[in-house]
Design a protein around this nucleic acid. Structure first.
Lengths: 330, 330
DNA sequence: ACGGTTCAGTGAACCGTTTCACCTCCGTCC
DNA sequence: GGACGGAGGTGAAACGGTTCACTGAACCGT
């Protein structure tokens, strides 16, 4: 029988104290050691547990952190979300995970909804870092950005994408590749996102002939995009801006009877756990996902507990060579 | 500037109505068409949005559904969680996702916490369906179980594991396999979970020589378990009770210089999106994940909206042949 | 003209905490 | 010995909605 939960007043009654005293006691504030013990005992006895809703209403803090993901089709972002969710749980907070499905318009709506839901803070992996609403959002609650920088955040975990792109493209160039297709996650409204800019800049510097095309994260979408660009451009290498897009290239290559890396080389970006299991293993740009998770959790928890001075953590990638990129024979 | 949000009283003031009337109007109850319009206009004007916390306190409903996953290391469960989260969002509900990390003790604690967090309902993929606390939990809020049955749920999406196991083992037998290793997710406290029971029963019926060993979902854990059993038992086939465990077998085989399927056949269970991309493709038991997601969301949403009569949906699997199981030559 | 329904809307209690302003001891310091 | 101060505790007002019991007016058929 779901008998009604005990309230703070009942505990007060039982101990002969005021509700206020009980409230303080249970949080270890302002009361004598002895009273605290007495209250704790009575609470345990009655099976009392403070109602988080009432607590949230009175205190203005919910204990929830919003996690706004760009696209959870991306397996790497799934890993990130799982890690963050766990990390927050260890800090006695709940993660409210939302998925913008690659759509900047939806990202905007969800950010709004998350704020309306009264989360104590947010972790965001922005699809459209240039959008105007971020400024307003950051002003109204602590936001931690992952990936790209955002104006007014309480903390940031920035990926050195310039370095990541350099690593990838230099490796391809060193092995003789010149005509390179680049598959980047679709972001209809923001063709000039910083990471993409680095690609064209680096390609210029290295004298590469690149063509950038959008691809969705899901297996089906990525495969379609890959099929098209492989047929139309016959690149010697494909650089994918997410491992889960590279997976689509594997599927497309298989379908078209192309061998990786003999007919086409594939370079990933992320290092998802699956990437080492493919045949050949996916050569990729490896970000320290654990480090990212820890930093993001730490930053957002601190910011949600009270105002902090802004901190920025920068992550640098390394190149993880497996077998999907081969030297191009002249 | 995060200027204070408008309250219902301000809207009441602006329209010359009582707060009660505004409350009703905004939910389309009990008021004239005309008043409703007036209230809506005023609300829009003031940028009023009902505070979910206050609403939850007063009405007793939070709009949140708890999702308790057995182990999010399992990529298939990740897919499931993402799908459910999206499905719930479409019904204007939030998913609160928690991860028991394969530990039944933690599952118990998290279920408790989820209830304390005042979710309107729960979706559970139980690690330990036999545990006693489920009964009590189901009595205190609507629970939908996925996978295994639970006493007292408001709805269930049951996998016909008997059929799945039969499909897998018969396929292996038909191709000549007799000595088969079975890797099943670790669940220390519940060695006799229903699915495992089916395995031994079916193996008996089919005259197979099986050995069951536990494996963790994570790449590292699964690989270790696979390595051990491949060396110790030299089975002709390995049947993995989750695709993400099979991935570990691929890694172990690679490491040991064993070819799949020439030296050892591998059978999965789930059909995760990645399974088709491996070389060779993973032959697996395919569950209709979309169907599962839809059913679970529908059931829990209905149950959270009000009492319903218990419903059970049963999912049947199909065998998806790729290339990881070969005929065993005598 | 009259009792009986509906319809639209009101007032106030309530949900279960937190927190602010105060109050009362009691020991201490000068 | 009186002002001071801190520790421990109290009462009541928030917090921002929902909902229950009720009212006044309009409308109905007879």
């Amino acid at each position: 029988m779901p008998r009604k939960r005990a309230t703070i007043r009942e505990v007060a009654q039982a101990t002969g104290l005021s509700p206020a005293a009980v409230s303080y006691a249970l949080r270890g504030l302002q009361v004598s050691e002895e009273t605290m013990e007495r209250v704790r005992a009575a609470a345990a006895e009655l099976g009392y547990e403070a109602d988080p809703i009432a607590r949230a209403l009175a205190s203005g803090r919910t204990g929830m952190i919003g996690l706004l993901c760009g696209s959870l089709e991306d397996l790497w972002q799934q890993s990130l979300a799982v890690g963050i969710s766990r990390g927050l749980r260890e800090k006695d907070r709940y993660a409210l995970i939302l998925d913008a499905v690659g759509d900047p318009a939806r990202e905007r709506v969800l950010a709004q909804q998350l704020r309306d839901q009264r989360v104590d803070g947010m972790i965001v992996q922005p699809l459209d870092p240039a959008a105007a609403f971020w400024t307003e959002l950051c002003a109204s609650l602590p936001v931690v950005a992952i990936g790209d920088s955002l104006p007014g955040t309480a903390g940031e975990v920035i990926f050195d994408n310039r370095r990541g792109v350099t690593l990838a493209l230099e490796h391809l160039r060193d092995l003789g590749h010149r005509r390179i297709a680049v598959l980047t996650p679709t972001r209809a409204s923001t063709p000039d996102r910083p990471a993409d800019v680095h690609v064209t800049a680096e390609a210029d510097r290295l004298g590469l002939d690149i063509e950038v095309a959008p691809a969705q994260h899901g297996p089906a979408g990525a495969t379609a995009a890959a099929r098209e660009i492989l047929l139309a451009r016959k690149p010697s290498a494909v650089f994918c801006f997410a491992d889960s897009i590279a997976y689509g290239v594997y599927a497309a290559a298989q379908e078209l009877g192309l061998s990786i890396p003999d007919d086409v080389s594939v370079m990933g970006y992320d290092d998802h756990p699956m990437s080492g299991l493919l045949t050949p293993g996916l050569t990729t740009v490896d970000w320290d996902i654990d480090g990212i998770v820890r930093a993001a959790v730490r930053l957002v928890a601190a910011a949600a507990d009270g105002p902090v001075r802004r901190r920025r953590v920068t992550q640098s990638p390394t190149l993880r060579e497996r077998g999907s990129v081969a030297r191009l024979l002249p």
